[in-house]
Every structure is written in structure tokens, then in C-alpha cells.
Design a protein around this nucleic acid. Sequence first.
DNA 1: ATTTAATAGTGTAAAAAATACACATTATAT
DNA 2: ATATAATGTGTATTTTTTACACTATTAAAT
Lengths: 218, 218
Amino acid sequence: MLSFFTVDCLIFTFHEGKLKVLLNERNEYPYRDWWAMPGYFVDKQEEMEQAVNRIAYEHTGLKNIYLEQLAAMAGLKRHPEGRILTVAYMALVRYDDVKNKVKPVTNYMRQAKWFDVNEVPELAFDHNDILKLGLKKLKRNLNYSTAPFELLPEKFTLTQLQQIYEAILGETLDKRNFRKRMSNLGYLKELDEYQTGVSYRAARLYKLDKRKFLKLFT
Amino acid sequence: MLSFFTVDCLIFTFHEGKLKVLLNERNEYPYRDWWAMPGYFVDKQEEMEQAVNRIAYEHTGLKNIYLEQLAAMAGLKRHPEGRILTVAYMALVRYDDVKNKVKPVTNYMRQAKWFDVNEVPELAFDHNDILKLGLKKLKRNLNYSTAPFELLPEKFTLTQLQQIYEAILGETLDKRNFRKRMSNLGYLKELDEYQTGVSYRAARLYKLDKRKFLKLFT
DNA sequence: ATTTAATAGTGTAAAAAATACACATTATAT
DNA sequence: ATATAATGTGTATTTTTTACACTATTAAAT
């Protein structure tokens, strides 16, 4: 057997107040013409995470991105050819880092496109389930993970951070309460720098203090 | 290839105030003589969860037990023969249901034994990591999952429930505060029944109200 | 120079949840 | 009757969460 198993990768980013996920339009049976998570076979001599990084690199031009394993799917009926074992991952990338990336076209896929996570069509295989899993995991771990900061530039405003919380939680938050809570966490560094290039009052920039974060959660 | 991939299963139970995990003493290379999680190959025509249930059944005599998928491990160097893809699960069983089960002996394993999760030796493969993962997941999801109730008989006392919380969290809790918190959750049914067979004041029994629980967490 | 538009940034009071803490009660065994 | 072993309960304090609205700042438009 040339190919042993596959990895699929939900690639999330954040842009214009929305959480987005990158999907491929398949050009191959089964599910030709359907949208699906990026994914491909893991080479025989390749580590699984390497394969995920390879796929993410082809789609984003980025290496060593933030990854979390979501689940292994092995249903006998997932694929008409028989069981194809797939390990699903979730990746988080900064929109600024990927916005100019040319979208890949291969034999296998016709195009790649960012979808608002709330406007995802019916996907190939069990990919809608996996998306749900990813969103649920993001939400559940929100307060213990650096996920929000993986979606933001290194220096960010509190409004941007709040928008990410809102997108992940699927609800709006009160500005004053959010800011109070964030500053009580103790792992945000307030910088003496401000936003530039906006036509209104520039907001203060913040950074994640990784040291303090790790101290709290390890 | 006769065997495609394996599943491993952490089987947890709760007994005498301790969280326990069932381990096998291996009788096969690699890691002969080491303790390891129960696990075995998934048959070609067998669903993955079926395989986990089969393994759990061999060890506990129970069918349709509570299962959660933990992780897929696929390192090229996990096994001297090359990559063996393994999907790790965690199962929760009631001690009353398994205490009389005869422990399996096969070609592959010499014996099975319950270990206090805090007294687990160095295990085969990456099984210590998987155990850590399982314990972490139990802890993190404690307040959103029925896990504690999967470890208890249908009718239980608040002291038993508290002991499970303490074992999972790894810390002691205040009795009065714990009871207050539990009754505020709203999904515990207070029964008009009491413990029997104890030589001291019998405690009131409680039940999980699954309907109310589901309403809160779905 | 003034106005407009857009977002940043801030405080307080009330409610809810978490914490700290100790003793009387009850059932059984002797 | 007494000893034993665990059950079951209340209150005060602190902390956290929630609800809520206006002024400040900047750049662009007039």
C-alpha cells in the first residue's frame, strides 16, 4: 500500500471580525465538486505532524504553525474504497501572514477559499462534524489556551482581542467587563505603542506575556 | 497487511477513594515485561469503537461502556517494526460491575491489574503520556461531563461523589461548600433512600437527573 | 476653524459565586 | 449506656461577574 493514512487540517484565521476556515473545492472522487478540509496522505516515512505542516504550508506559505490534534476518524464507510483512517488537526494562523498567499490549484482541488465559520456549506466526508469539533474545542479551551493570540498579530488592541472572543464564543461581550477581566488575568502586557493608519482615535497595543501565561497554566 | 492499526484503552474505575487504571503486563516484544494500557489491533472489517469495546469487554466483562477518544499516536519510532498507528481511548467503568471479573491471560499479556493512578510505574511505549492526557481531560471536563457518574453506582452518596471530584482534581474539597455547589447545579436528584450495610449513620442517596444535565450542556 | 464620524477608554453599584470555618446528629456495634 | 464513625448543616467574608452610559481622541470632511 502506498498510502497509509491521511491527515486533514482545519485552518482557522480571523479577519474583519469573523472567524474563517480555509476549504478546498475537490476535483476528485469521491465528493468531487464538494468543499472539504485540506488534507492528504501521510507519506510512509513522514511524521504525522510533518504531513500536517506540509499541507498547511501548501495552503498558507507558513511553517511551524500552531496545531492541535482534534480526532481520529476511521469509519469503514467514510470512503467508497474502504476504511481510510484520517487524523484531523486544527491550525491557527494570522490573517496578515496569509492574505497574499496564492491559493493552490492541484489535480485534487480546484480552488481554496476562506469561509466564515457560520456560512460553511455541506462538506465532504464527515468534515462538518470535524469543524464542529474544532469550534467546540476552541470554545471550551478559550480561557486556558493561547489560541486567541495565535489569530492576532503580535501586537494587538483589546478590541481585536474582544472580537476574537466574541467570534469563538458566538456571543457579544460587554466592553468594560471584558477589559477588566483581561487585565485581571495578568498575562497581557500593556505597551506604550498605539495603532497606526486608522482614521479615528488610535487604540493602545498589547502583547501576550508568554512567561506569565505559562506560569499560570503548566 | 493483516493488521491496519491499533486501539489502546485507558480503563478507569473508582474504588476505596482512589482513581484506578487497569494495566496489562506484556508478554511480547517490544516492551516485554512492561506494564501497558490494554490495546490490540483493529480488525480490517471492524469499526474502531467496536474494537475498543471488544478490548474493554475482554478486560471487564462489560459492553457498551462510556468511551472518549483521547488521541492518535503515529510516531515513526514508536515501534521497532515501524510506524504503528494507535488511537487511544479512555473508558470509565463502575467498580461494582467489574470487581469479580477474572483477569484475562493471553499470549500477549501475563496479567492485568488495577493501579492507583498516582502509583503507575514507567509504562511501555508512550503510555505514560497518554495516561497524563486522560487525567488532564477528565480534570478539565469535570464540570461539563457525566464522567463522575460513570464511575459511581446509579445511586450514590454525596461523599462518594466528593471523593471522585477529589481524586480527579487531586485536591481535597470542603464538604459544606461541595454540597452547596452540587445542589446548585440542579441536576442531582435527592432520593428518599439511604445507604445500607454501613455500621454508622446511613447517608442519603442521590441520582443524576440526565434530562436536566443534557438541557444544560447541549 | 469647525463639524462630523468613528472608535477608544473609563467606574460604580448590585448580584452571584466561592471560600473559610466547627459542631450537633444519627446509626451501629460493643 | 457508651463508643465509634460518618452524616449533615449555616453564616459571614471575599471574590467574581454582571449591568449599564458617557467623555476623549483622532482624522477626515466641510
